[in-house]
Amino acid sequence: FEARLTQASLIKKILEAIKDLVTDANFDCSPEGLSLQAMDSSHVSLVSMVLHAQGFEMFRCQRAVSLGINLASLTKILKCAGNDDSITLRADEKGDKAEFVFESQSQDRLSEFELKLMDIDSEHLGIPDTKYSAIVEMPSSEYRRICSDLGVMGDTVRISVSKESVKFQVDGDIGKGSVCLHPSSVVDKPTEVVKISLEEPVDMIFSIRYLNYFAKAAPLSDTVTLSLSKDFPLQIEFKFGEQMGYLRYYLAPKID
């Protein structure tokens, strides 16, 4: 397996977005691309990442291989890569180590690291294609702000979506609060749009702590999409660009 990405910053941001939620994970390499699926230690949420092969500058994978990686160790290695460095990842069939090569844009600096891999026995969950009742698209910076603002008030947030608005409400020890967003009527910048598509209104409760973990993915994408259906996990998606791939989080709802 060998793959090269032009911008190390993408992998660095992906890692920042999952390392506080997941300790160890298998990076699954196949001819289609690089993917990862992992639950947090409490088994309340699930991370699903896909980087399509065509998003890489170079991608070669003859046989599917899983690279078991400790994310804290990978973070240490990726700290050594500049944001604009290219990154080449290599693994042989034995799958006991992975090689990382970082090269500066001017090609005058090359650094090489080797990471010991681990055997991770993780169960892979099947995520069904779902027709969600409500889909909300909003700026990821707005999502991050709401989660951080409401997170100081309480542990859970009630998300209510109607045709007219999406409302985030918190009810905590010191009092309560809410933020309500209406779909944008005037669109100046596509990245500042709030869009709601609705089959039926939803009203669900989620842990704010996890929503705040997911907000660490905001640097990956200008917009985030929240998909909700009653009594079903919330899906939060950050896309890396049209052809590149995505990072999705799933969070089990709190049931009254």
Binding site: L125, G126, I255
Partner: peptide
């Protein structure tokens, strides 16, 4: 108090 369900109770094991 709302109770928290596990994510694996929603998605089938492959």
């Amino acid at each position: 108090q709302a109770s928290q369900k596990s994510i694996s109770s929603f998605f089938k094991k492959n």
